[in-house]
Design a protein around this nucleic acid. Structure first.
Lengths: 190, 190
DNA sequence: ACCCTAACTTGCCATTGACAAGATGCCGAG
DNA sequence: CTCGGCATCTTGTCAATGGCAAGTTAGGGT
């Protein structure tokens, strides 16, 4: 079964639905996402999605898990110290807005889902690994993960504010460049 | 200011609906909020909310505007420099989670609504005022609002991550204390 | 060849958001 | 004091949605 959507069996419905969900969320946000609309886009009946994901929360849980894996990959690919790690985080949020919009909303999915937990842990590990590899890291024995938490907070906050559209226009239209300036303030003491 | 809210049959439906909405969002998030359920809680017919808010987005726009005003008030009441300003931001997010959950989600409301814009600008001004009043502010002439942006990002990110429930348990259960530690890293170079 | 189970379907129901048209009651004009 | 105006609220309705139940199909393992 290649990608042909013909026949009683779709062949790769799960993947097709996930892709359609990402498209739909990107177009109008997660709030207005409709399982029936996804089914229409995939050319299947309105109840087909339930078989693969159970319900809407199940679908969004899968989207979130996929997002955390994509994020882990983006963080691992980042090269250039903490600064570029943070830039990669912001870049991921902007380029994969649909995933990002779901990943941190426990009311939209099932935060305790095992697959989601594992994927979330993978991206958390990638973040901590990037922070730990910093050569000029400050010795703060009392709170070893404080650096990671502060870095995570500032890049997550900047990404969220950027996506929310509440930042002043003067900041420009390049999220990575803007993020670089902001992140720089976190450790300009070095 | 938006409109005289003296009531006839109910007394003050608009305010009652807003309060019910905040309760409902606090219980199950904004996604599952139902205008009909709010109407039931307020003891009015299912179509009554539409008269005051137009539609669901209108209701959430009002909630967001109320949130930005509460935030501005909380920021103005904060005393103790940038650190406590940030702590107040996080405290607001945790204590007014329902408002906070709506304020930065443009897909849930009408970001261009005049009342919302005004309220948002008031809280933005309160934030900038707090940052500007810092005695030990660094002279960074090239980007005068960079400090405010970095501070906003780190506290907003921390608050969002806290509410999303993705922070490790070791962080404890006191968001203000945890925020204080994180924010401290932003300007420990002093 | 056969079954048997996952994959997908049709059918159904309660709930919801939105709209239209009617009822209610406070207010001010005269 | 009366009466019309009008914001407030109600009833009625419709299409769309999520989720459940029961039936149908096909493809792989034995």
């Amino acid at each position: 079964m290649s990608s042909g959507t013909r026949g009683y069996h779709h062949g790769d419905l799960r993947r097709a639905l996930l892709a359609a969900a990402v498209d739909g969320i990107g177009e109008a946000g997660p709030a207005t996402l409709s399982l029936r609309d996804l089914a229409r886009r995939a050319g299947v009946s309105h109840a087909a999605p339930a078989h693969h994901f159970g319900d809407k929360a199940g679908l969004l849980t899968a989207v979130a898990a996929e997002g955390f894996d994509l994020l882990a990959e983006a963080l691992r690919a980042a090269d250039g110290g903490l600064l570029e790690l943070g830039v990669a985080y912001v870049g991921f949020a902007v380029e994969h807005r649909a995933h990002f919009d779901v990943m941190f909303r426990p009311d939209l999915h099932r935060p305790e889902d095992p697959d989601l937990r594992a994927a979330r842990e993978r991206s958390g590990a990638a973040l901590r690994a990037g922070v730990a590899s910093l050569p000029d890291r400050r010795p703060t024995a009392d709170d070893p993960d404080g650096d990671a938490l502060a870095a995570w907070s500032i890049v997550h906050g900047f990404a969220t504010l950027w996506l929310a559209g509440v930042l002043p226009q003067e900041i420009g239209d390049d999220p990575r460049a803007a993020a670089r300036v902001v992140i720089h303030r976190l450790f300009r003491q070095a």
